[in-house]
Design a protein around this nucleic acid. Structure first.
Lengths: 221, 221
DNA sequence: TAGATTGTTAATCGATTAACAATC
DNA sequence: TAGATTGTTAATCGATTAACAATC
């Protein structure tokens, strides 16, 4: 089945839809119209329908969307219907925070290894995972099927580590180092730049303009 | 002087410009043209010039941009020429990771307090900051001038904490809880949704398409 | 059926890229 | 000056919103 390329903007919204649908599911809501969801999520109903129809018709005229079904389908689109083995490179606070976040496992992301260069940490347990030494990494990657590596280490180590793991079969990098990685086309890189985020916050604080001044968007009826 | 509203897309790119200019500065590069920077950053030279000219003419025809000067100016635009007092709500791994990240202070973000509900943590030092109890928060906020609160706590506590601190004068929330916050218009909210990021990664892994080819999809049979 | 709401096309809006005159 | 490169306007591209026919 040929599917047209989905824009980055749409992909970024999918996890948010998934989250809201999960919440609705928890509250026992069975069905929802694009208009109701629009109210909750502060996006236009038109955009919701447009976004979803990139992937097929999940709704029903006169009814709306079945919450359970839509939630499941978006999960599939996001690839949450399978499991991934993930390792964490850098056992600092951030690395340990990721390792401890239990929901990742529920979405299929299994942390199976944590690595650091600090000999002091060797063998320390994080949850049920022992911290291993980076020197063991090549061997580890040959013996274990790892799809994702999270880089929670200093920026000057990020490039070398990214190259090491991708050379050993890792297909995706979740990058928390404060640098952009240039890797072969077939390696997926998703970066979380905390400092960029904080700077945006700071920009908005310095340049606050009352948004109520701008005319409000017209609602669809 | 009235400045026209800057689009969200531009603002998101500013920290990245700032980062690259900082790197250039460290390598002792004195001047750079939009074309050279374009090569490094993988954005078009046209976009760079267009972006910068939202804020004024920082370059010089025939010369390019002075790295030091441009770096400083973008820093000012981002509000990095002043300092902010920040508190962290939630002293888990993520909260401690933020507290330990020394670069934030260099950009003007000073972590002056860390709070948690767990009595076990009361008084524990993170760097030079003692963990305090959330119950002390209202009084603390009256005695200290806090501009930013980072929420590194479970989603079900996020709303109440956000409301508490903003009611006590905090102007901006850096939100790491897995929920969207609805707060008064004049409160700045910047969210980092780690799970959203991981799901985008997962989407891209499941739907990888060789970007070097225009058409054709990964053959699945 | 009648009412509701999707799926989808068309219109609008905004952001990116191209082009080039201004000017260092 | 001649060459280089910006600042800025115009053209293009893409994403969002509006509208409505299809249909449950």
């Amino acid at each position: 089945m040929e599917r047209k390329t989905i824009s980055r903007a749409v992909i970024k919204r999918l996890p948010r839809y998934y989250r809201y649908l999960g919440d609705l599911l928890e509250s026992g809501v069975e069905r929802i119209s694009s208009n109701e969801l629009s109210d909750k999520m502060q996006v236009t109903a038109s955009q919701i329908r447009q976004d979803l129809n990139n992937f097929g018709g999940f709704g029903q005229q006169g009814y709306g969307y079945n919450v359970q079904h839509l939630h499941t389908e978006i999960g599939k689109i996001l690839g949450l219907d399978r499991t991934y083995n993930m390792i964490i490179l850098g056992a600092g606070n951030l690395g340990q925070a990721l390792a401890n976040y239990s929901k990742f496992a529920r979405w299929g992301f299994k942390v199976i290894g944590i690595f650091d260069v600090d000999p002091e940490l060797d063998g320390t347990m994080v949850r049920d995972i022992p911290i291993r030494m980076v020197s063991e990494l090549p061997r580890y990657l040959k013996e274990n099927d790892v799809q994702i590596a999270a880089l929670t280490l200093p920026r000057n180590q990020a490039k070398a580590m990214a190259e090491l793991v991708t050379a050993n079969g890792v297909k995706a990098i979740w990058n928390f180092a404060h640098t952009d990685l240039k890797l072969p086309e077939d390696v997926i890189v998703e970066s979380v730049h905390l400092s960029d985020s904080l700077m945006q916050l700071s920009y908005n604080m310095s340049n606050y303009k009352d948004k109520t001044q701008k005319k409000s968007r017209t609602k669809e009826k």
